[in-house]
Design a protein around this nucleic acid. Structure first.
Lengths: 108, 108
DNA sequence: CATATACTTAAGTCATAACTTAAGTGATTG
DNA sequence: CAATCACTTAAGTTATGACTTAAGTATATG
């Protein structure tokens, strides 16, 4: 559940697509792999990256592994953006106040 | 302004820190570099990654380059999470409806 | 119980990322 | 106008990522 691993995981289009699909519904490894033009092991490696980041978790029953997204991990990343936006807005506010106080530029 | 480059850029803690600081206020390259225990070229390379992603833009005046965040690029990434959340919620809703209709499990 | 299924493990290849040091360029400044 | 300052460019090193193929291991299923 750390941002390094989370953003790293989301930097790959295949992995982002996997998360998009898993956000709509859980899927098995083979189902997940089906659309991609790559070997199964490659898909499983992508999955491992997603699991390591905490974005996805999976559970094996018999010989079938079912994967689902972990919304908490998505929220954590989302929060990072919320905080940046808050800081950005705070700065704009300070800037506005400042301009109201010194409309003709900084006093020398 | 693509998500691959954006998330890739944010996957590095130094670059995330740079964005955090630039969200609070613009800074020159040297100011930006000052806290980090790495060479200036390394910092500039991080900066190049941020600029390539569109998260940061910079402008040179004389020999000083000033950097600032591009909030639009942050928004774009933020939206990706909004969409995932929306899909996740939609799925929970469908599931709830379904359970209301078949409280004792799927009809065989 | 032999065979197919659904992954798993292992190992190797090739490209990219994250630095480094050394040497340059062009704008200020004493 | 010589020195300093604020980057820039170039090139090399080491680690990490994104695959591949080949072979293996538990579950089902006919």
């Amino acid at each position: 559940m750390n941002l390094d691993a989370t953003f790293q995981a989301l930097a790959d289009p295949t992995r982002r697509d996997m998360v998009e699909r898993l956000a709509r519904a859980p899927a098995t490894v083979s189902e997940l792999a089906q659309p991609y033009a790559m070997s199964l092991p490659a898909v499983v490696q992508h999955l491992a990256v997603l699991e390591a980041s905490g974005l996805v978790r999976s559970e094996k029953q018999g010989r079938v592994r079912t994967c689902r997204v972990e919304p908490a991990a998505l929220s954590l990343a989302e929060q990072w953006f919320n905080q940046r936006r808050a800081e950005w807005d705070a700065r704009l506010d300070r800037l506005g106040e400042h301009l109201k106080r010194f409309p003709d530029g900084e006093p020398k």
